[in-house]
Design a protein around this nucleic acid. Sequence first.
DNA 1: GGTTACAGTGAACGACCGTACACTGAATAG
DNA 2: CTATTCAGTGTACGGTCGTTCACTGTAACC
Lengths: 200, 200
Amino acid sequence: MSRQERKLRTRQALLDTALDLLADRPFASLSLREVAKGAGLVPTAFYRHFASMEELGVALVEEATRTLRGMMRSARADPDTYQGMVSASVATVQQFVRANEDHFRFLTRERYGGGPLARAIAAELRMFSGDLAIDLARFAPLRAWSTEDLHMLADLIVSVMLTTIVELLEARPGEDPKITGMAEKRLRLVLLAVPHWKTS
Amino acid sequence: MSRQERKLRTRQALLDTALDLLADRPFASLSLREVAKGAGLVPTAFYRHFASMEELGVALVEEATRTLRGMMRSARADPDTYQGMVSASVATVQQFVRANEDHFRFLTRERYGGGPLARAIAAELRMFSGDLAIDLARFAPLRAWSTEDLHMLADLIVSVMLTTIVELLEARPGEDPKITGMAEKRLRLVLLAVPHWKTS
DNA sequence: GGTTACAGTGAACGACCGTACACTGAATAG
DNA sequence: CTATTCAGTGTACGGTCGTTCACTGTAACC
């Protein structure tokens, strides 16, 4: 195994350890020594990979938002009918959350945690919402909407989706269908209003 | 000043100091010594008021949710017309957030922070949403709705309101009208769907 | 007015924290 | 084959942490 390959592996071990420890506590309560020990390293070796815990946090945000972007890409590839969109999107969210619980837990927990991580996550979510607004504009009933109203709708949908993600993360085993069912209902209710909205 | 009065005052000083320090960091990163020092106490005096930081956290949740309940009470007292409800509710939220920024910052930050505080806050929000569902049932267009759908709608409204609260807390000065405007739009959009919903 | 209850003090402890510094040994470069 | 680079080691430091314990002074009580 090459040297840089081994270094990358250690770096990933640090990230994975941190994500593990973050399952039930905020990032700010994590210590450098704790993460290093979890990855099987002596504390000072940590600095070979990150200059500080904050830098590791930023790397964690990047890793998690990569998952988020993957989710959006996957949702975009789904059937593009106005009808099937709701259940397909909710199903995509459910699958991605279940396959990457740590990432989503980290994102939703640190989103309001304050500090630079919260800012980075907020920026990412704004981009996410912006992309969604663009996608929405392609649907017939929304083509005449003002960009402001499109963003309003996109924000609303993102907010519903994030609520769903948190519900999934807090769910007991087997509750997924109940949660996705409610999520679909909420989205359908919102979309039901669309044809009756007079855009400004 | 009586003895217990002075004790209560010190206790409040501890709570206020903690809330101050929590302006931009999570509760879990707060230390007992830090809070004690901020309140002008020696560390060990802390124990005269709380057995642990967690107990102080619980007291903080109680204090903050008292503000939240006050907000709901105030909103309930507002004009009960289906028309004026949206702008009146949003205005109430805006006023309460501005008058109690620390409480709302604490609630929204710790809501997903994990641990016992997050559980306590989640329970309070469920109660809040339940009360709202009951209130909603009194409006004509909703009288025929199933309780399940009423809860779905209430959750949706609470979710929109919480998004609005976070936006207000992150707003730069003077942005309040823009944010309340968007919040009203989002609520109106949701309510627009109500007459067309076929309850199950 | 003597006694008691108790909010707040101050020193001390062992544990953990981030970080500096000198080091080792193996993969890499020349 | 030799020289260099560098991921990881081990020790040591000063600081903060939660918690212990014996204490003091004053408001409250009989």
